[in-house]
Design a protein around this nucleic acid. Structure first.
Lengths: 243, 243
DNA sequence: AGTCCATTCATACGTTCGTATCATACGACC
DNA sequence: GGTCGTATGATACGAACGTATGAATGGACT
């Protein structure tokens, strides 16, 4: 066993410095149009775009501040570390989507009275929030699409723990409602079909955000409602398939 | 526009050195049990595992050689640059899968005589090769699973160009055969349903490779044939859904 | 025994990384 | 107008990065 480098291979995000000494947290800004809040948002926007394009590990804080027209020190000042910036970028987008999904599930259950909600209603509750945001203002928001798609698959362990745990609570609730709407389906079968559905949703968002990934003849006429309708129809048929 | 760093933000993989001067290509080894070939394979295996776990950008060549018990210089000697190692790691796994898919498509067409092949046969041709390899030797080959799943979503531009172009030729052929088996389905609808299927397949491979990602009650009884059957049934139902 | 050549090793170089520090700029309040 | 705290700017530091290089090593052949 002759190795040049003796660092453990277990660590996944090697700390670049021994100890952070001066983490001055700026007090929560009034989050309005103040100059500071503007800088903060600009950094978040730029980081979101670059993370979506290249991934987190391949994007340096200098890339971000440079493209945002901000100073290098702004990262440390507003976020402390790169890792906290990463968390902020993902949290800002993912948590609202998860909350909207949960709200739509609640609404579906409420409107159904005591009966199980319609399958398609549940599926729409899970797909609409992210897809709708992906077409904000009528055009494709490619950075948002790819960022959401990157949530799974992003090997950053902190993102995994914090974000995925939150997101999967929603999917768990969806699964419970789904079991009532599809009483004949064995739980094991349902588990895998939900995974297939998650895959279709995230893969579509991730790869549709890429420029040139959709042939022109299939891109025209693509909007949020059409995509939701297609995905719901596909998933509903798959979930109802005989075993 | 006051920026500290003036590097262009366009570049996606910044060159770490000006020019590679001494790229000595070792002549193709006899690929048998020679000591050199063993080192090469060990590096490929280790890189595959680490890329699958952490992603390409977050894995350094020192991580790889360290974990493989090889010398740092072995990367330069056997592969030239990290980028060429990355390509070798992906190529080694993806191309055989794509060839097997193509062969199964050919076989499906041949066996069907002049008629369109059965839908399920086509779906199996696309899913079996990667899933089967993921359960090589009876147990889950998690590194392979995640590596395949990472193909899309890996923002490395070279991987994108070379690998994805090759893989998508197979999917294109699949689409042509599929159109004959599902004559009523509009092309646009079919295009998106194929994307959903690709997403389900890749997402399942990517996330199932993660330790602890499958609850124990759903992991037992999981083998290649069961997963293929589930995925084919789900995709077939989705593809046949009414518009 | 001696030569050669493929491979491995140790180490070096220059760059980029994340983070920290300190000086300066600026607006609100007395 | 002076003071103070928030925000920004320029720069520094050490670690880790990809890559390069030249010396050792060792087996195969003459």
């Amino acid at each position: 066993m002759n190795r040049t480098d003796t660092r453990s291979e277990i660590q996944t995000e090697p700390p670049r410095t021994k100890r952070r000494t001066g983490a001055h947290k700026p007090r929560k800004p009034e989050s309005g149009g103040s100059q500071a809040a503007q800088t903060r948002e600009s950094i978040l926007d730029t980081a979101e775009r670059l993370f979506a394009e290249r991934g987190v590990a391949a994007t340096s804080v200098r890339d971000i501040t440079g493209a945002a027209g901000a100073n290098l020190g702004a990262i440390n000042y507003h976020f402390g570390t790169k890792q906290e910036l990463v968390m902020a970028v993902f949290s800002r987008r993912i948590f609202p989507v998860a909350e909207r999904q949960m709200a739509l599930l609640d609404e579906a259950e409420r409107k159904a009275g005591g009966k199980p909600p319609r399958l398609e209603t549940l599926l729409e509750a899970m797909t609409r929030p992210s897809i709708e945001k992906s077409f904000a203002a009528g055009k494709r928001n490619t950075a948002f699409m790819r960022l959401v798609g990157r949530c799974y698959g992003e090997p950053n362990p902190e993102v995994e723990r914090r974000i995925r745990a939150h997101v999967e609570k929603v999917w768990m609730r969806f699964a419970i409602l789904l079991a009532r709407s599809l009483p004949g389906l064995p739980h094991e079968e349902m588990y895998w079909r939900i995974r297939f559905m998650v895959g279709a949703l995230h893969h579509t968002l991730l790869t549709s955000g890429r420029e040139g990934s959709i042939p022109p003849e299939f891109r025209k006429g693509l909007d949020a409602e059409t995509l939701i309708r297609r995905m719901v129809a596909y998933a509903a048929a798959g979930l109802k398939a005989g075993i």
